[in-house]
Design a protein around this nucleic acid. Structure first.
Length: 585
DNA sequence: GCCGTTTTCGGCCCGACTGTTTTCAGTCG
C-alpha cells in the first residue's frame, strides 16, 4: 500500500461525502489530507506498521485522519470509506470525471433517477431524462453527452513533453496576434509536473475580442468550451483542454502567480496573506479591510509583501515551500548548467542507434566532461545485450579512444554497463568482470509484478553486490502506462545508503523515475541522485532537461546530484562507495 | 475534520463562466 493508494482512498471519501451534500469543510479536510499524504516523503505504510503510535507531523492530519491511515495501511481499507461505498454505488465517482458534472448534480441524478453507471447516464441523457431535473436543461444534457464521449477517447493527462509540443504551436499563432502584448504559460506546465492535465495560458492584451477570436479559432481547436471577455476554454483535437486568461498589465504578476498554482499552494498562500492583513486574488494584492490595492511589479513583490522569498514554480505544491521561504531556507535548486556528464547511454552494441564516437561528439556539443557508455547485459536479448566477452571488448575500445591523442572529441568516456537484475536479485554478468568497470548500473527489466517484499528484497540484494554504483529507473514506472513496482522505498534508500549506491532519476519523458517525492526522500536520507538521459539515439540527449525539471520539483540542489561532480570528484565518489563488505566480494 | 499571534469553539480562499435562472447554484480552476 503506497502513499498514492492511501491518498486516493481519502479523495474518494471526499467525493462520496460531497455527492451526499455533506459539510463542505469536512470534505475539504479529506481533500487536504489526501494532498498531504500524496506529497508526504515518508512511506506511511511503514509508519503505520512500525511507528503507528507516534503522531504524524503532517499538516491537515489530526488524530482522526491518522487513525484512518493506520486502518488502511494495516487492513487495506477503512470503515468510513466502506460505509460510504455501502450507501452509494462506486460508479458515481466516474460521473465526477464528466466535464460539467459535479457532485451536486451527480447526487441529484442518482437520487431522482436511480442511475449509477456512466452507461446508464449516457442512455438517460440520450432519452432526454436529464433535462427533466431541476436546474438542468437541454444544454446541460448535451454537454454531458459530449463529456462522456470525450472521456471514452481522452486518457486525461498527457506527458509534459507532449504539452510542450502543443504549446509551441499555440504560442507561434497567438503571438502573431497584434493585440497580445505578453503570453505566458502557467499551471502545472510551468510547475514542470511530469504530466499535464490541461494548459493554462495567460496573456496581456488591449482588446479582448480579437484575442479570444484568435484563440478560439486556432487550427487545432476541436471545440470551444467557454468564451468570455477575460477567460476562454478550448479543447484541442488531441483532447487536451487549453484555457486562456486575458489580464490587464497591472494584474499580470498576481495572475501569473494565481494561475501557476498549485491550488494547494495558492490556498495556503492566501491563508497566510489573510493572516497578515492582505487579500490575494488573480487581480492583485489588496490591503484589508479597505481593499486598497498594493502595486506589485512581479511575483517577487507578492511573495515579499507576505514575508517570503520568491518561490520557484517547481516547488509550489504546498509541501513546505511556504514555510521554508518564510524562514529564508529555500533550496538553491539544481540547474541544467550544473550537469557535467551523462551516466546512462546506449550504443549500437546493444539497442542504441549511435556509435560510441557519435555519442561522444554529441556529448561535446553539450559541453560534457564525461560520458558513460552503459549498454545492456546479455539476458536482455531483445536489446542485443552484451555478454562478458563483448563487454570486455567494448572496454578495450573505450580505453583505446581515451588514449588517442588525435580523437575527434574531448569528452572522457567511462566504461560502464547497465546490468540486469535477475529475478533472484543476482546480476546478469560476472561481478568480477563488472568490478573492472568505471560504472555499474543495475536495473530491473523483467518480472515486474513481483509482490512488494520479494521485489524489495531482490533489488536490495542487487545493490549489496560491491560492484554496483547506481540503480537505474528504480520504480520501473512508465507514465500513463505502467504503474511503479510495489516497493518499500524506505528499505531501498536504506540499502542505497549502506552499500554506497546512488539512485537514478531517469530523464526519459515517460519515465522520470525517481519521481519528485522520491527525489526529495533521497535528499533527506543523504542518497545521491544521478540525472541521466538513458540516451538510445542522438535526439535523446536533451531529455536530461526534463530530468532536471523533476529534480528541481524534488528540491534537489547541485550537491545532491552525482553528475554535477567533476570527473575527478566523480571517480573518487565511485571508488569511495565501493568498500566491498567482507564475505560479499 | 482540522486548527489556534483573533480562537479549545467557530472559523475554514476566491472569482469567472454557464445554464437555467428572474437572482443564483453549480462547476471549475
Amino acid at each position: 500500500m503506497n502513499n498514492s493508494r492511501i491518498a486516493s482512498i481519502f479523495s474518494q471519501i471526499a467525493d462520496l461525502l460531497e455527492i451526499q451534500d455533506e459539510n463542505p469543510f469536512r470534505i475539504r479536510s479529506y481533500r487536504r489530507a489526501a494532498q498531504a499524504i500524496e506529497s508526504c516523503a515518508e512511506d506511511l505504510a511503514s509508519w503505520a506498521l512500525h511507528r503507528g503510535d507516534q503522531p504524524l507531523h503532517l499538516p491537515g492530519i489530526g488524530s482522526g485522519m491518522s487513525q484512518k491511515i493506520r486502518e488502511i495501511a494495516t487492513e487495506g481499507r477503512c470503515r468510513e470509506h466502506q460505509d460510504l461505498l455501502g450507501r452509494l454505488p462506486s460508479g458515481l465517482l466516474d460521473f465526477l470525471r464528466v466535464p460539467g458534472l459535479g457532485p451536486r448534480k451527480t447526487g441529484l441524478i442518482y437520487r431522482e433517477l436511480g442511475i449509477s453507471t456512466l452507461a446508464q447516464l449516457e442512455r438517460a441523457a440520450r432519452e432526454g431524462k436529464l433535462q427533466a431535473l431541476p436546474g438542468m436543461g437541454a444544454k446541460s444534457e448535451s454537454k454531458i453527452l459530449r463529456g462522456i464521449e470525450d472521456l471514452k477517447k481522452v486518457a486525461g493527462r498527457v506527458l509534459w513533453i507532449e504539452a510542450e509540443q502543443e504549446i509551441q504551436e499555440i504560442r507561434t499563432r497567438m503571438t502573431a496576434c497584434p493585440e497580445i502584448q505578453t503570453l505566458e504559460v502557467a499551471g502545472s506546465f510551468r510547475r514542470r509536473r511530469d504530466t499535464v492535465g490541461d494548459i493554462d495560458i495567460l496573456a496581456i492584451g488591449s482588446i479582448a475580442e480579437p484575442v479570444m477570436e484568435t484563440f478560439c479559432s486556432l487550427p487545432a481547436v476541436k471545440e470551444v468550451l467557454a468564451r468570455g471577455t477575460t477567460r476562454s476554454s478550448i479543447r484541442l483535437e488531441s483532447g487536451l483542454q487549453v484555457d486562456l486568461r486575458l489580464v490587464p498589465p497591472e494584474s499580470f504578476p498576481a495572475a501569473l502567480q494565481y494561475f501557476t498554482g498549485s491550488q494547494a499552494h495558492n490556498v495556503a498562500l492566501r491563508e497566510r496573506a489573510k493572516r497578515s492583513g492582505y487579500k490575494i486574488n488573480e487581480y492583485g494584492l489588496f490591503r484589508e479591510p479597505e481593499d486598497a490595492p498594493c502595486p506589485i511589479a512581479g511575483e517577487e513583490d507578492l511573495y515579499r509583501i507576505c514575508g517570503m522569498d520568491w518561490i520557484p514554480p517547481e516547488l509550489r505544491e504546498n509541501r513546505g515551500e511556504l514555510e521554508a521561504s518564510a524562514a529564508g531556507r529555500l533550496p538553491k535548486l539544481v540547474e541544467w548548467q550544473d550537469i557535467r556528464g551523462d551516466l546512462h547511454n546506449h550504443t549500437r552494441d546493444s539497442d542504441g542507434a549511435c556509435t560510441m564516437e557519435e555519442l561522444a561528439l554529441w556529448a561535446d556539443c553539450r559541453g560534457y566532461e564525461y560520458l558513460a557508455i552503459t549498454d545492456h547485459s546479455k539476458s536482455l536479448t531483445v536489446a542485443h545485450g552484451l555478454d562478458e566477452r563483448r563487454l570486455l571488448r567494448q572496454m578495450e575500445e573505450i580505453d583505446r579512444w581515451n588514449a588517442r591523442a588525435d580523437k575527434p572529441f574531448r569528452v572522457r568516456l567511462l566504461k560502464g554497463c547497465e546490468v540486469d537484475i535477475k529475478a533472484d536479485g543476482s546480476l546478469d554478468l560476472d561481478p568480477e568482470v563488472l568490478s573492472r568497470l568505471d560504472l555499474v548500473i543495475a536495473s530491473v527489466h523483467s518480472h515486474m509484478s513481483m509482490p512488494r517484499d520479494e521485489m524489495t528484497e531482490r533489488i536490495v540484494r542487487a545493490m549489496s553486490y560491491g560492484c554496483v554504483h547506481l540503480l537505474a529507473h528504480p520504480t520501473g514506472r512508465i507514465l500513463l502506462q505502467r504503474e511503479p513496482f510495489d516497493l518499500d522505498m524506505e528499505k531501498i534508500f536504506g540499502a542505497a545508503l549502506r552499500w554506497g549506491v546512488a539512485l537514478e532519476l531517469n530523464a526519459f519523458p515517460a519515465r522520470l523515475d525517481l519521481d519528485d517525492i522520491h527525489c526529495r526522500m533521497a535528499k533527506e536520507k543523504g542518497v545521491k541522485v544521478a540525472i541521466n538521459s538513458d540516451t538510445h539515439a542522438a535526439e535523446h540527449f536533451h531529455f536530461l532537461r526534463y530530468g532536471v525539471f523533476q529534480a528541481r520539483r524534488g528540491w534537489l540542489e547541485k550537491g545532491d546530484v552525482l553528475n554535477t561532480q567533476s570527473l575527478d570528484e566523480l571517480r573518487a565518489t565511485l571508488r569511495q562507495g565501493k568498500r566491498i563488505p567482507a564475505g560479499l566480494a
